[in-house]
Amino acid sequence: VTVHVNRYTYHFDNPEEAEKFAREMAKRLNMTVEIHGNTLKVE
Protein backbone atom coordinates (compact mmCIF):
# COMPACT_ATOMS: atom_id res chain seq x y z
CA VAL A 1 0.00 0.00 0.00
CA THR A 2 1.36 3.40 -0.99
CA VAL A 3 0.60 6.67 0.77
CA HIS A 4 1.34 9.96 -0.99
CA VAL A 5 1.72 13.08 1.15
CA ASN A 6 2.72 16.15 -0.87
CA ARG A 7 5.90 15.05 -2.65
CA TYR A 8 6.67 12.23 -0.21
CA THR A 9 5.77 8.59 -0.73
CA TYR A 10 5.45 6.03 2.06
CA HIS A 11 5.05 2.26 1.64
CA PHE A 12 3.17 0.02 4.07
CA ASP A 13 2.70 -3.75 4.10
CA ASN A 14 -0.35 -3.40 6.33
CA PRO A 15 -3.35 -1.58 4.77
CA GLU A 16 -4.78 -0.65 8.20
CA GLU A 17 -1.51 0.97 9.24
CA ALA A 18 -1.37 2.84 5.94
CA GLU A 19 -4.88 4.21 6.40
CA LYS A 20 -4.20 5.14 10.03
CA PHE A 21 -1.02 6.97 8.98
CA ALA A 22 -2.78 8.74 6.09
CA ARG A 23 -5.66 9.90 8.30
CA GLU A 24 -3.26 11.14 10.98
CA MET A 25 -1.25 13.10 8.41
CA ALA A 26 -4.42 14.50 6.84
CA LYS A 27 -5.64 15.66 10.25
CA ARG A 28 -2.30 17.29 11.02
CA LEU A 29 -2.10 19.02 7.64
CA ASN A 30 -5.81 19.87 7.52
CA MET A 31 -6.19 17.87 4.31
CA THR A 32 -8.30 14.93 3.15
CA VAL A 33 -7.52 11.30 2.30
CA GLU A 34 -8.43 9.98 -1.14
CA ILE A 35 -8.37 6.23 -1.64
CA HIS A 36 -7.53 4.84 -5.09
CA GLY A 37 -7.25 1.06 -4.76
CA ASN A 38 -3.87 0.42 -3.10
CA THR A 39 -2.92 4.10 -3.15
CA LEU A 40 -3.93 6.65 -0.54
CA LYS A 41 -3.45 10.32 -1.37
CA VAL A 42 -3.41 13.01 1.29
CA GLU A 43 -4.51 16.17 -0.50
Rank of each mutant, 00 (worst) to 15 (best):
V1R: 05
V1T: 09
V1A: 08
V1Q: 03
V1M: 11
T2V: 12
T2H: 14
T2I: 12
V3I: 03
V3K: 01
H4D: 03
H4V: 14
H4P: 01
H4I: 15
H4L: 12
V5G: 03
V5M: 06
V5D: 03
N6H: 13
N6W: 12
N6R: 07
N6M: 11
R7E: 14
R7P: 05
R7M: 10
Y8A: 12
Y8M: 13
Y8N: 12
T9L: 13
T9I: 15
T9A: 10
T9Y: 11
Y10L: 04
Y10D: 01
H11M: 07
H11C: 15
H11L: 09
F12Q: 00
N14V: 08
N14A: 06
N14C: 11
P15H: 14
P15D: 05
P15N: 09
E16Y: 11
E17W: 05
E17C: 12
E17D: 13
A18Y: 01
A18Q: 00
A18I: 01
A18W: 02
E19D: 07
E19F: 14
K20R: 12
K20N: 10
K20G: 06
K20P: 01
K20V: 09
K20E: 11
F21L: 01
F21K: 00
F21I: 01
R23F: 12
R23L: 09
E24V: 07
E24Q: 10
E24N: 09
M25F: 04
M25P: 00
M25L: 13
A26F: 02
A26L: 03
K27M: 09
K27E: 10
K27L: 11
R28K: 13
R28Q: 10
R28D: 06
L29I: 03
L29G: 06
N30Y: 03
N30T: 03
M31Y: 06
M31Q: 04
M31S: 10
M31P: 01
M31R: 04
T32C: 11
T32V: 14
T32G: 05
T32I: 14
V33A: 02
V33N: 01
E34D: 06
E34Y: 13
I35F: 12
I35P: 03
I35V: 13
I35S: 07
H36D: 12
H36A: 08
H36Q: 11
G37I: 05
T39M: 13
T39Q: 12
T39V: 14
T39K: 09
L40S: 06
L40Q: 04
K41P: 05
V42G: 05
V42F: 03
V42P: 05
E43S: 14
E43Q: 14
